[in-house]
Design a protein around this nucleic acid. Structure first.
Lengths: 363, 363
DNA sequence: CAGACTCCCGGAAACGTTTACAGCAGAGCA
DNA sequence: TGCTCTGCTGTAAACGTTTCCGGGAGTCTG
């Protein structure tokens, strides 16, 4: 009824029509003034006034429909409780914000359908582009990535021929760094606590571990390998199982959450870290510095990967015709107290002494 | 040119027009079939086929403009690296997902302008509603909350008369629980590591701490109070400053991140936890169970608050005319090893505590 | 067999913007 | 004075959907 006369939107909020009517100008003029392009001083005054009086706020959806852009970028990760994604997110956010866009994060919880659904639904124009970091990649998934309606950048491993922008690291050699370091420190019974083998990172790290041991001519004792998932509780449980059946002198963990779980398991079992068992995590998140002793960890450059992914995405948004690109970030090892070289041959002090510490070295 | 004839969208993607033309039906019929409402078997077949052939995906923006809803809900928090928000987010997500919507998270980084901008811009129709958990509340902020174009629920303290849906806890009495517990365990020199006093939670916890001590007839030694921010590094640094000038037999921390920092500072200084110093954190996040010894912590029901906030929001979205409501979640204390009652009167071990070290300072 | 009822369809009008286009007034210039 | 040029303005057409509404074909009932 009054709808047409009052020129307001369905839910009673003012629209550009309301403002225009109130200012006594056309909606074109009102729109121009509101966007700061053109308009005589008098018109500008009237429109500004009218807009303020009715408390006009533009409808971003309508604007986006017209302009074909939303100014939003999404990041989809599996588990926002994992600090590695927090770090990545921060890096992405700063790049994205610099371009005047806003970053939204979606946690997929590893439910693959959820992730695909996100690509197929949410991405369908709600955002200008998205960055996804899947831990499992199915064909279905890949198909959704390839013909996504909006630009997508993948952080993580992808099939070589996938025509998708991609920033990866080499967690395989990353594991190698950890093993090299431990072997150099005189450890020989090196255990490995990994995440599921049917995930991309889980498989890569498993391969890396086996290759590294072989490279040092060490035989792999399967009792020293245990699998959980990529979170704390499972990591701890896995480490407990491992400790119950074997006597490692070092543990490599597939990420920092697992490593913290393993640390807990070790301490609870009365093992000294690093004296009895050296410990190396992976991802080098801030969590690694929050433990006592602080955790050595293989950095997979999560911030750097995030930054680069964001840049790739912005470039692709600017020019969708760009050929797919692939970037790689090299791993490095941060040595901290949990694996600092300690003289294994010294008799253990009667009173458990604090770990001799060497300052953090970033290799 | 071909635009009109080919019936495709500006960027060459198929629209409902493309599908309709290809199927030889009207766009109305095409739309109906695509939405699964009506259509003869023959029409359904033709439209489905045409849609599949051209790879049609609906433009969500256009749909939202028409339907006045996006199916998205946003959560704005200060620091996504704080596990308390992760927990809250998970709770919200499960409620939101059950309503068929998707949750997007935005980290404001505590930049107040960012938060207000989010309300003023993003919220302007990109989402059906949002939950914000501000740690500082200015008048400007409040104004933005009150006349937000979309329903908003605030998690946290608000002025009593603010007409905004609100889920709060009572962190003041929460701190009291911690102090009561420590006093009952025989501790008398109780320290407090807090976040900034110009934040809502910081102020409440400070007040709670002072009130609780007074309630037990204990005088407050100001040297036992230290302030950083709500993150790990600052918490650790603050605890180090405190330890350098005073000898607490217990520490209450304003959240778990600070508590982990304090734990690190204590261990690095050679104090035994809980023997020498008992430690209680706040928020009872999963982080509290990841430390060794595990951290006692005051639960402020973050998951419960998230759940309720999500429910309030969904109800308000369904009926925007609802009067503003306010809910409260009671705090509780989870006692773990870091403050377990230990016989304080036992003689300290002959071997002196390890040399106090000042390890790497991150802050 | 007529009338009412059901089902399906297409045209067209929304949703709230931005913007191409054309018209119009005034200023500058020959 | 007449012409062009400039700067503003309003009309209307997009953007890609959904949905109201009226019409036509078929079915059931009396």
């Amino acid at each position: 009824m009054g709808r047409k006369r009052l020129q307001e939107s369905a839910d009673g909020r003012p629209t550009v029509h309301t403002v225009a009517a109130r200012a006594g100008v056309s909606i074109a003029s009102a729109s121009r003034v509101l966007n700061g392009v053109g308009g005589s001083p008098e018109t500008i005054r009237k429109v500004r006034e009218a807009a303020a009086e009715v408390g006009y706020v533009p409808n971003a959806i309508a604007r986006s429909l017209q302009s074909q852009r939303t100014g939003l970028v999404a990041l989809a990760v599996e588990d926002i409780g994992n600090p590695v994604y927090v770090e990545m997110m921060r890096a992405i956010e700063s790049v994205v914000a610099a371009s005047g866009r806003q970053l939204l994060v979606h946690a997929t919880g590893g439910r693959i359908d959820n992730e695909t659904a996100l690509l197929r639904r949410l991405a369908h124009r709600y955002v200008d582009g998205m960055i996804v970091s899947p831990i499992r990649v199915t064909d279905d998934h890949l198909a959704a990535l390839v013909d996504s309606p909006v630009p997508v950048v993948v952080v993580g491993q992808l099939p070589a021929d996938a025509p998708v922008d991609n920033v990866r690291t080499d967690s395989r050699t990353g594991v190698g760094l950890a093993v090299d370091h431990l072997v150099a420190a005189g450890r020989r019974r090196i255990g490995f606590v990994n995440g599921p083998l049917d995930t991309v990172p889980g498989a890569a790290r498993d391969a890396g571990f086996r290759a590294a041991l072989a490279g040092h001519g060490l035989a792999l004792d399967e009792r020293l390998v245990e699998i959980g998932d990529f979170r704390y509780a499972a990591g701890r449980a896995a480490a407990e199982r491992l400790l119950a059946r074997a006597e490692p002198d070092a543990l490599v963990c597939a990420n920092d959450l697992i490593a913290v779980g393993a640390l807990h398991a070790l301490l609870a079992a009365g093992r000294r870290v690093p004296d009895d068992v050296a410990l190396v995590g992976m991802d080098d998140t801030e969590l690694a510095q929050m433990t006592f002793p602080q955790l050595s960890s293989v950095s997979l450059g999560s911030a750097e990967r995030g930054r680069r992914a964001a840049e790739l995405l912005l470039q692709r948004i600017a020019d969708p015709a760009l050929p797919p690109r692939r970037e790689q970030v090299a791993p490095s090892l941060a040595v901290r107290a949990s694996s600092a070289a300690t003289p294994l041959f010294l008799p253990a002090p009667a009173e458990p002494a604090p770990a001799p510490r060497t300052p953090e070295v970033t290799a």
